[in-house]
Amino acid sequence: MRRLPLVPIALLLLVLIIPAFFAQWIAPHDPYISNLRARLQPPVGFGGTWEYPLGTDRLGRCMFSRILHGAKYALGISMVGIAIGAILGTALGLISGYLRGWVDVVIMRLVDITFALPSILLALALAAISGPSLGLVVLVVVFVIWGFFARQVRAEALSLRERDFVARARVAGASGPRIVLRYILPNIMNTIIVLATLQIGVVIILEATLSFLGIGIPRPAPAWGLLVADGRQLIVSNWWISLFPGLAILLTVLSVNLIGDWLRDWLDPKLRQA
């Protein structure tokens, strides 16, 4: 069995989880208050001071504080979006795999359609109608990820429903819902957990992309994608504005993926015994 991935876990705590919950106590400045006398301060080590460790943006807002507060959006949206997407996708995948027939065909074609539709374009269209909002981001996240869950869960349900213990449950008088909830779902739980973990990275990047394009979380919220976008025009002269939020995204996604890989091995009984 592979050892607990301590470095990714520490990184994740440091960059995402602790800031998401404790930003208001850790952050040295209010992320929304600008200090026009301290505009475009460079970070420590590049001519800056410890007053603004990661420098300031065009309005003189503390980048360090903004990144810390931005973690809330990354964590919140990925948790809510994945929870809804996973529950929806799992439910539809179970129905699809257990019932088969035309229900299966309809649900799987829906998955194909959502995979075929460009999600960014969809978000742009929706944002044009209703304006960017938190709800819209969650909606797009759910739209993008539910199909992964539905497909994977369906595939496993199809194989599990042919297993002997399901046949035994049927001849012992178990009803369809009971078989799905007690015999199929618990045996797919590992897969769902691993898939959800691996989706966190996808969702954080998606949220950052939407925010970067201005169709995600509305300004002046310090979502990481927005922070990267803010620094885009000044990237040559004031590189730190984009670099540090980008680094936060990179480290978060990297550590989440490493933890997901480890979790997949750890939850697999065959690999665990080896």
């Binding site: 297993r163 002997d164 213990f165 046949a167 035994r168 449950a169 049927r170 001849v171 012992a172 008088g173 178990a174 009803s175 369809g176 007690r182 015999y183 618990p186 045996n187 739980m189």
Partner: peptide
């Protein structure tokens, strides 16, 4: 039939190694 299976007529399958739900 669901109501009849188990209560009025039961069945024992061939392979005990795969006849039980591994997670309970």
């Amino acid at each position: 039939m669901t109501r009849i299976r188990g209560r009025e007529i039961g069945m024992i399958l061939q392979d005990p190694h795969t006849s039980l739900n591994p997670v309970y």
